[in-house]
Amino acid sequence: MDGHINWHSFYFLLFGLTACVFSVAVVLTGSIVRMAFYLTLCLGATAGLFFLAGAGFVGAMQLLIYVGGTLVLLIFGVMLTAQGPFVNMKTRAGEWVIGGAAGLMLLGLLLQAAFRVEEWRGPPEGVATATAENAPPGEIGIRMLGKPGDNGKAVGKESGYLLPFEIVSVHLLVVLIGSAYLARTKRRRRASDPAEST
């Protein structure tokens, strides 16, 4: 029995549980910095899941952009907007109840949708998924440059992504400029004097 441990599944359990636990922790914790930390762990575990799914490049991207970039940005925001060392804004109990209930409903919905299709349940037993290799990034790059894949088994489903790629590039530029404009230093108004803040 011991010899049949499926390491792929094992790692999935490891990373999936990490992701789930820490995403719940994000919801439950009150401190915004701890939230960010748990989020990091959650997203890191997600990156691990990406590796398990054979999307190594996406996983690395996730680490680089989310964990390395976006979250650092977020922490910056936290530090810039925190007045005391640890700011808690208490949520009322009623909101917790309503939010939790709605969330649970949604979760139920999504879970039953996830396990509904037999085909999605995974490969038939005995197929060794532990050898799942990450696809080389070459194909991703080529597809991004607009060359449709000639993967014979999925003709018609795959196409080039040059236009979205370009749109996203321009979008990023716009965002860069826009956020630089929005966040540039302005005269800071005092909170105690609402008459000044028009």
């Binding site: 939010g99 709605a102 949604l106 919905l109």
Partner: peptide
């Protein structure tokens, strides 16, 4: 919350 509830109702 409205969005969530809307989604749930829609699916139901």
């Amino acid at each position: 919350l409205f969005i969530v509830l809307g989604t749930v109702v829609l699916f139901v």
